[in-house]
Amino acid sequence: MTRIDAKFAELKAAGKKAFVAYVMAGDPDYDTSLEIVKGLPGAGVDIIELGIPFTDPMADGPTIQAAGQRALEAGQTLQKTLDMAAEFRKGDDSTPIVMMGYYNPIYNRGVDRFLADAKAVGVDGLIVVDLPPEEDDELCIPARDAGLNFIRLATPTTDDKRLPKVLQNTSGFVYYVSITGITGAGEAQAADVAPEVARIKARTDLPVVVGFGINTPDKARAIAGIADGAVVGSAIVARIGQGEPVDEVLDFVRGLAEGAHSA
């Protein structure tokens, strides 16, 4: 059982939904980013998605693209992102960390080396948005064999024919993308998302969490109410990009978490 499995079991036993927060590692700089990440569990975050900055983030909207650029300009690397996870683990051995990004930095490091290093620093799962199920031998299956969850995205265009392929080697949870397009575009509507979540849950026992288009506590509550949890990324990253103090960013996160937990 991974920390992700344990967290969902704990939440289910308590009758609560998950709140998942995404931040870009190294944004706006290493020290500030680490301070934010360390503060997330205290603000109510159940699972942390830690973005790996990349030069060509094709699935991300302007907000997260800008965050990745800030992080890269401040000197963030894949190694420093692993270092950040290791520093976080010194004070927290229970909150799951999912590293989210693109395959190129992992490929350049070497899959075996990356997986060994990620496991050693306490990473629990991976979301790699540009590796489809047809490429499972590249990273998904080796990650599973190394004891890491490989979390797949399902989208509004994932039809009943495609869905079994998407679910095939997925573990930890399924991330349902509520809207078609890039991050930060549009707003999630619970009425539209509910039947899609039900369709996925009919095919898997894994928790289904919903992300994209969630930017207020009320929206987090509405989406968590029809799924197993809600993910917020762009709305948090935007505040970091605006230079908000760490405590104000964490206060905003706390409100979102309370919304999801009250579902």
Rank of each mutant, 00 (worst) to 15 (best):
T2N: 15
R3P: 06
D5W: 10
A6C: 00
K7M: 15
F8H: 13
F8T: 03
A9V: 03
L11S: 04
A13Y: 12
G15Q: 13
K16Y: 08
K17P: 11
K17R: 15
A18Y: 13
F19I: 06
V20P: 07
Y22F: 15
A25Q: 04
D27W: 01
P28R: 05
D29S: 02
Y30W: 12
S33V: 12
S33I: 09
E35G: 12
I36D: 08
V37F: 02
K38Y: 09
G44F: 08
V45W: 02
F54C: 09
D56S: 05
D56F: 11
G61I: 03
G61M: 01
P62N: 02
P62H: 00
A71S: 12
L72W: 02
A74V: 15
G75H: 02
T77R: 05
K80G: 05
K80D: 00
L82W: 07
M84W: 00
A86H: 04
R89W: 10
K90W: 01
K90H: 03
D92M: 08
D93L: 14
I97M: 13
I97K: 06
M99L: 15
G101A: 06
Y102T: 10
Y102H: 11
Y107A: 05
N108F: 12
N108E: 14
R109M: 15
G110S: 02
G110L: 06
D112A: 13
D112V: 01
L115M: 04
A116L: 04
D117K: 13
D117S: 14
K119M: 07
V121P: 01
V121W: 00
D124Y: 01
G125H: 13
D137G: 15
C140M: 10
C140F: 07
A143H: 04
L148H: 11
N149E: 15
F150V: 01
L153Q: 08
P156D: 13
P156A: 12
T158D: 10
K161Y: 14
K161Q: 07
P164E: 05
P164H: 14
S171T: 15
S171E: 10
G172Q: 07
V174T: 12
V177F: 11
I179K: 03
I179Y: 12
G181M: 04
I182E: 14
G184L: 00
G184E: 01
A185H: 14
A185E: 14
E187T: 14
E187V: 10
Q189I: 14
A190D: 08
A191K: 14
A191D: 15
V193K: 06
A194D: 05
E196P: 01
V197Q: 07
A198H: 08
R199D: 08
I200F: 06
I200D: 08
K201C: 06
K201N: 08
A202D: 03
R203A: 15
D205M: 01
D205I: 02
L206D: 04
L206N: 09
V209S: 02
G211Y: 10
G213W: 12
N215Q: 11
T216I: 12
T216S: 12
D218S: 11
K219V: 10
A220F: 13
A222G: 03
I223N: 04
A224M: 01
G225N: 07
A227C: 09
D228G: 11
D228W: 07
A230V: 06
V231M: 05
G241C: 05
Q242G: 11
G243K: 00
G243V: 04
D247L: 11
D251I: 00
F252S: 07
H261D: 09
A263H: 04
